[in-house]
Amino acid sequence: MAGRADHEERRRQIAEALLRIADAEGLQAASMRAVAAEAGVSLRLVQYYFATKEGLLLDALARLGAQLQARMDRWIGAAGSASSPPSPRGIVTAILSCILPTDPESRRITRTYAAYYTLVLNSPTALESHGTLQPDRLEGFLTKQLRAAQRSGEIDLAKDAGMTAAGLLSMVNGLGSSVLAGQRDGAAALAVLTHHLDELFGTPAGRRSPHPA
């Protein structure tokens, strides 16, 4: 068991080195040699754990997805309480708000995902069967929450939940890009999101901050 844990720790160390390079310089700078230097290990060790660059990229992408999932879980948890689980609106608000680059963690995650998107755009065959896994799952989860909100009377039944979920995610991705580009800050992006959610759900009587304590 100890040996297996050591191997996993080495893989994590190397994959997170790639993610740091992707965040700071983009994936074009993340050669196997550069990753080895960032991780503080030999190139041979990187090649031992990851025989190909694509294998390393996919492993790191899965870890990035896990980091985003952990962040979403924290924000969803903060949207409810010990005695009252979060409502569909609370869940949708928490997920979309936590994706926006409003703090160091979310800015790092957003920049690193952007590095992966750039890689796919520049090399259409790279990660083509993996790059949409998390966005597809997220869109599907949001769609379920919006349908639950329709059943509880929070959203008009005439709305297409799938199209609405896709539109909200596209808007948040665009807002994230505008924050990274300096067009607006995180608070302004959150205000835009809140405006559209109020149009969808209605303005709540007592608004609660989506940010976990």
Rank of each mutant, 00 (worst) to 15 (best):
F141R: 15
A17R: 07
A78F: 10
P86E: 13
L169H: 06
L119E: 08
L18W: 05
A34K: 14
Q13S: 12
D6Q: 11
E154W: 02
L175D: 05
D59I: 00
I91L: 06
P204K: 08
N122G: 13
S31W: 03
S123R: 12
G80W: 12
A166D: 02
E9Q: 14
L43S: 12
G182V: 05
G186R: 12
P88D: 13
A82I: 10
R89I: 10
A82N: 09
A15F: 02
D136W: 10
T52K: 08
A29V: 13
Q13R: 15
L169C: 11
S84L: 13
V120P: 00
D103W: 04
L138T: 13
R12F: 01
G140Y: 09
R137M: 13
S83V: 15
Q67E: 14
Y117S: 10
A188G: 03
T143P: 00
Y117H: 14
Y113P: 00
D185I: 01
R12D: 10
I95Q: 14
A30C: 08
Q47A: 14
H211Q: 11
A2L: 11
L19H: 06
G174M: 03
T194Q: 08
D160E: 02
G162D: 09
A181M: 01
S97Q: 05
D185N: 14
R74C: 07
S123C: 04
Y48W: 12
Q134G: 02
I21F: 08
P88N: 13
S31H: 07
R74G: 05
V46D: 08
T118K: 11
A30Y: 04
D185A: 01
S178I: 00
A158Y: 03
A70R: 14
E139Y: 01
S209N: 13
T132L: 10
G140K: 13
H211N: 00
R74I: 09
E38I: 05
G77Y: 01
L180G: 02
S178V: 00
A148F: 05
N122V: 01
S42I: 03
R208W: 00
V35T: 14
A22T: 12
A94M: 08
G174R: 03
A29W: 09
A30G: 11
V92A: 15
R137Q: 15
Y48D: 07
V92F: 12
R137L: 15
A115W: 03
D6T: 13
L56E: 11
A149F: 10
S42L: 02
R184F: 05
G153S: 03
E25W: 07
E128D: 08
T93C: 10
E54M: 06
L190Y: 07
R208Q: 11
I155Y: 05
R33Y: 09
P104C: 03
L57P: 03
R44H: 14
A37P: 01
V179T: 04
E16C: 08
V192F: 01
R137N: 14
